[in-house]
């Protein structure tokens, strides 16, 4: 039996994390396991888990290290964590999520505390940068989303490297460029695409229309200075869950 870990803390993100894990479990063909790394009592997380009808397993130790160890278990296919703690928490907002994202070679879904959607996702927004590795990383995820009936919206924000040299007639050039981009980078025949110019994170987040949206983001797990702007900004500002898929890792997704 494959598992999707829902890692809850004492913040308002806990309940959305469990909800998101429940909604995503069919994509991964997995069961949900709710865990909490103990910090100053477990009453709140137990109550949240209980309210969701879920058992809770308590872990002891450094939160990030514990979570990484759990997610690394061979039967675990993905993990769901909260985006950021509430004000006044013991760590900088999002820091646990960042550590987990950087170290785990499996999909990690980060859920913002304000996410209020109920049962299932309706649309996957997928930023692609035209790198073959990025497209390969999300291919399995997109397939699972398509099989689950999600609408797939690919978004490409022109970068310095991908900005076209020529753009003959806007009415047609965008249409053809987009068609070829999808042909090269997205195997899903029903996928749509938006081409944008500007700041990538702003353009991607601008596309989110409702709580039924999910962002699927491939990334290199490189958090060094000047890198992963889209990851940082999405973590900080997204109001919907974001699936972070490490480039180059093998992923299990429902056949």
């Amino acid at each position: 039996m494959t598992v999707i870990i829902a890692a809850i803390d004492r913040s308002s993100a806990a309940e959305p994390v469990i909800r998101a894990a429940t909604a995503l479990a069919p994509l991964f063909d997995a069961v949900v396991e709710v865990v909490h790394v103990r910090e100053d009592g477990t009453g709140f997380p137990e109550a949240v888990a209980s309210a969701a009808g879920r058992a809770l397993r308590i872990l002891d130790g450094d939160p990030a290290s514990c979570l990484v160890d759990e997610i690394t278990r061979p039967d675990v296919v993905a993990a769901v964590v909260g985006a950021r703690g509430g004000p006044g928490g013991p760590r900088p907002a999002g820091s646990t999520a960042l550590v987990v994202l950087a170290q785990v070679r499996k999909p990690v879904i980060v859920v913002p505390p304000e996410w209020a959607h109920a049962a299932s996702f309706e649309r996957a927004i997928v930023p692609l940068d035209a790198a073959a590795a990025t497209s390969a990383a999300v291919e399995a995820a997109l397939g699972a989303c398509a099989r689950a009936g999600l609408e797939i919206l690919v978004v490409h924000v022109f970068s310095h490297d991908t900005l076209p040299h020529f753009w003959d007639r806007p009415a047609y050039e965008g249409e053809e460029w987009a068609r070829e981009f999808l042909s090269r980078h997205c195997a899903e025949p029903e996928a749509h695409i938006e081409l944008r110019t500007g700041a990538p994170a702003r353009e991607v987040l601008d596309l989110v229309k409702g709580s039924g949206d999910l962002i699927v983001l491939a990334w290199s797990q490189d958090l060094s200075w000047g890198r992963a702007h889209l990851v940082r900004e999405t973590l900080a500002d997204s109001c919907v869950p974001v699936v972070f898929v490490p480039v180059g890792a093998a992923h299990h997704l429902a056949e």
């Binding site: 022109f158 806007p170 009415a171 965008g174 081409l195 944008r196 110019t197 500007g198 601008d206 596309l207």
Partner: peptide, 18 residues
């Protein structure tokens, strides 16, 4: 046969006058 609109690259539409 010129279409009157095209995408403006920011999710909006661009009026074409050609």
């Amino acid at each position: 046969a010129t279409p009157p609109w095209a995408s403006d690259g920011h999710g909006g539409l661009l009026r074409l006058h050609t």
